[in-house]
Design a protein around this nucleic acid. Sequence first.
DNA 1: CTGAAAGCGCTTACAG
DNA 2: CTGAAAGCGCTTACAG
Lengths: 332, 332
Amino acid sequence: MSVTLADIARATGLSPSTVSRALSDPDKVNAQTRERVRKVARDMGYVPNQVARSLTSGQSDLIGLIVPDIANPFFPPIIKAVQARATARGKTVLIADVDEHAADEIRRAEVMRKRVDGLIVVSPRTPDDRLGELAALTPIVFVNREVPGAASVLVDNDDGMFEAVEHLAALGHPAIGYLNGPRRSWSNTQRQTAVRKACSDVGVELVEFGPFEPQIQAGVRAADLVSAANITAVIAYDDMIALGLMARLNERGVKVGQDISVIGIDDSPMSSMAYPTLTSIHVPGAEAGAAAVDLVLDLANTSDAAPSLVQLETRLIVRGSTSPVPNPHPAA
Amino acid sequence: MSVTLADIARATGLSPSTVSRALSDPDKVNAQTRERVRKVARDMGYVPNQVARSLTSGQSDLIGLIVPDIANPFFPPIIKAVQARATARGKTVLIADVDEHAADEIRRAEVMRKRVDGLIVVSPRTPDDRLGELAALTPIVFVNREVPGAASVLVDNDDGMFEAVEHLAALGHPAIGYLNGPRRSWSNTQRQTAVRKACSDVGVELVEFGPFEPQIQAGVRAADLVSAANITAVIAYDDMIALGLMARLNERGVKVGQDISVIGIDDSPMSSMAYPTLTSIHVPGAEAGAAAVDLVLDLANTSDAAPSLVQLETRLIVRGSTSPVPNPHPAA
DNA sequence: CTGAAAGCGCTTACAG
DNA sequence: CTGAAAGCGCTTACAG
């Protein structure tokens, strides 16, 4: 149906080899021949068959990207950054959303692996004991999860978390609630460790809640627990939970940013759109995505490259949801 | 490097043909042979090379999905639905985010076309006069845009828009502002036509603003225009604009849901999380995505299928951002 | 600089 | 039911 190399060879009276070279390895061909071939190719509407090209070259020009949930606003910026960088480097991105299902991750990755040059897995849900299976699918880069011996782009929660705790302490809050993320989440372990350390360093009491799923509904549920506990400042595992928390508190007549201070994590686009605007720890998702593309392509190109590790920093973005502790203790 | 059909043939002492059939066309092979082959394949960790398979079969088991902007919360539910339906039908989804750039759409579609079995383009930004180029890339299905002679999944804005206008009129608003979407947007033309008709049918005055990009920032800008115009009720082209509008009004001390009523379109997940919660016209994105997959696969399987058209309905979801017109005219 | 040939890993008529 | 052969569309050493 569509125009092939052979068609162009026939039309120009050249061999398929020459046509191929004229199109994809221009230096190896006489300039005039090259231009003639290119003109005919254009006129005939030739589009190279990537599938055939992949079969011979062993390269697909595809990068696989696996994310837990596109609908979580933390991920779109990462996806966009990955796409932008990949496009700039001549690659196309194959995305899989695994809907937070750990079990799907390895399966999707294995299927993808066969048709992509490299894999990027963001915030993998795969349990520790099976992570090796994923890591074996090289070239692979993990974002937001440290995997021994594998390349990864990591986000250091410590700085941002310390700033958050310091901020709340400076506002006079005697105790801070932390809403844990999913039980077996690697990110939550990091954040939990960071908040514990920060609270003990700064000298404020820490009260933990959860685990909660990174979803608005979980935040709604958290709100009632927090209210009952008489806490004046809360740090949530992520913005989604923080947003749900705020929505429910608003609904119950508790004024966020006055009666209670709330801090999210991710600094997703929604945090500046909530009411009040949400103080949040900025996680450099876009940078992480771009870095991951570079890492995975390096891995794909140089077989001997040692898997490297990129560390990115977090920092607190103060907005309207945090304020000095209310003098009269809130009625809860 | 990895295990191929030939390796299994060697290991079992069978021919590649038989191994191939045992794996992908089981009925054509002796039951015992089949089981033996499958066991060996499993033991050797065989994963079929999809690229090679595509080259012979002409099928890629890939569906291409082109969306204007993943970060716009209207799209993730569509993407998830497309992925879910595609997976259920044995296909994988290749996603491209064109960042609202009309120019990229055709280019990306052409590149994708070569490696997918069919294309789904959501809310195409391509201008009318070049839409034919896109439509020629069959099998292709358009979501949210009517393309003569091409298959599409359309959303009927009329019902939802009528309900919105009726709702505002019933609340006593004498005039309604409409914030137009992008100038050359097909969806905006539909929505603009629908709101004009509804206002004239219901008998309320219509004041138009814009065009605005479907982005929060544009809504922020719109807020000041709306305030200056002394309007008590606004329908925005989409939720993003409505959300930006509300954020800015809140900031200026105008109470949304009291001083002014706001209605968005899309009923994206964020609309129930905003403060106040956003009354919005529900657009069935997930249904549209699933329907698009079915259409495109039908088209791919039966060459003679006439391009069909699926129509979906919209309806108003009332939340906290709309209320009776304030008695004392707001100071603006 | 150009061409003939082999091959990438699989599928699928065609024989037997 | 099984095998030998050809072919999908391209690339790439190997000759010339």
